[in-house]
């Protein structure tokens, strides 16, 4: 049985990350709704990257995971970049 202080750490830690996710989402929404602002989609994607980093680091504890696990997570992204890179090499030069 965990002590109450440990329980509080668990709950507060999750609430903290949740609050950060929520605020980031709210800022993304606000930026999208205010008319006339430039680069709306890139801005939204930057927010998603930050949110994803929070979930990966805070909830999924990727930072504390072994090097093997972190490499695995990275490899998915790297291989996806192959698909984008090579296909756009075609699409942009047609």
């Amino acid at each position: 049985m965990a002590g109450t202080s440990e329980q509080r750490t668990i709950v507060l830690g999750a609430i903290g990350i949740w609050a950060a996710l929520f605020l980031l989402g709210a800022s993304s929404l606000a930026y999208a709704l205010i008319p006339g602002l430039p680069l709306k989609l890139p801005a939204a994607l930057v927010v998603v990257v930050l949110q994803a980093a929070l979930v990966l680091g805070g909830f999924m504890r990727l930072g504390k995971a072994s090097a093997l696990v972190r490499t695995t997570a990275l490899i998915g992204i790297v291989w996806l970049s192959f698909l984008f890179m090579m296909s756009f090499a075609d699409l942009w030069t047609r």
Binding site: A89, D90, R94
Partner: peptide, 15 residues
């Protein structure tokens, strides 16, 4: 290397 299946499929000459 997958694009070598698409040389005659309308892929750009550069790709």
């Amino acid at each position: 290397v997958w694009g070598h299946h698409m040389f005659v499929a309308g892929q750009s000459p550069f790709a």
